[in-house]
């Protein structure tokens, strides 16, 4: 079906691009979760009145997060080229694109998880303290599980943003769908490629959103659900 509209060579290119986008988004999402989640937790638990209150540390993390978040992605990408070369060994290609993507998205993810955890009722944390929980147990057994629906919603927003950012990162040598759309659809004036790229992106974003909503709903026990057995 696809081959009726696009020549086979372009279909192969499209599949390649999808794979590159998936790699960029997937790896950057994984890395930003690994870094962003602990940062989000730190932002919460070192905050004012919290059980690991550390005002200085909290302010430092908060400031760094805000700095990165207020830098436009295009500028960030260029600004960290030396770091990218250091980490990826190159400044072009999919691997190189992952570095700025991760750095740009981690603060967003940290803020979204922080917001989700702030929603957790303070009295639950107190209850855990009254039970003799260690700070790590409070985080692991109370804060994260209670905030999970919100954290998953944040993860969804992060993934969707990553798809968008990855299209931009692609244009500076990262490959992927955005790169394909610009090179063929725009520069070689092949509107059908542009349309195909946009359709694929819409499908990807839509799928992420649906999967994310479903996951958040599944772990959310704050609203009553009618059960089959009663």
């Amino acid at each position: 079906m696809l081959s009726d509209l696009l020549p086979p060579a372009l279909v192969a290119l499209l599949l390649d691009s999808i794979l590159q986008t998936a790699t960029m988004v997937g790896v950057a999402a994984l890395l930003s979760t690994l870094v962003g989640l602990p940062l989000g937790v730190l932002l919460v638990v070192t905050g004012k009145g919290q059980f690991l209150e550390r005002p200085a540390l909290n302010r430092v993390i908060g400031t760094i997060v805000n700095l990165i978040r207020s830098t436009p992605f295009i500028i960030l990408m260029v600004a960290i080229i030396p770091l990218t070369r250091l980490l990826a060994g190159t400044t072009v290609g999919t691997a190189a694109a992952i570095v700025p993507l991760t750095i740009a998205i981690t603060p967003l993810y940290a803020r979204l998880t922080e917001a989700a955890m702030r929603e957790v009722d303070q009295s639950l944390i107190e209850a855990a303290q009254a039970m003799g929980a260690t700070p790590l147990q409070i985080i692991w057994k109370v804060l994260l599980p209670e905030a999970l629906p919100g954290i998953l919603a944040g993860q969804t927003v992060t993934l969707v943003s990553l798809v968008g950012y990855s299209a931009m990162a692609g244009t500076v040598g990262g490959g992927g769908l955005g790169d394909l759309g610009i090179r063929f659809g725009y520069q070689r004036f092949m509107p059908e490629v542009m349309v195909a790229v946009v359709i694929v992106l819409v499908v990807i974003v839509q799928s992420i959103q649906m999967a994310g909503d479903w996951a958040a709903r599944t772990v959310n026990h704050r609203v009553a659900r009618s059960r089959d057995r009663t």
């Binding site: 009722d121 009295s123 107190e126 209850a127 855990a128 009254a130 039970m131 003799g132 057994k141 599980p145």
Partner: peptide
């Protein structure tokens, strides 16, 4: 603190755990 139990006005149960899971929390801790 483990020798001192506490109950709260608004119950302070974890919404993500069942009744059994909530009761298990102090034991896990």
């Amino acid at each position: 603190r483990r020798d001192i139990g506490m109950i709260f006005q608004h119950f302070s149960l974890m919404s993500s755990r069942t009744a059994a899971g909530n009761i298990a929390l102090p034991l896990e801790i």
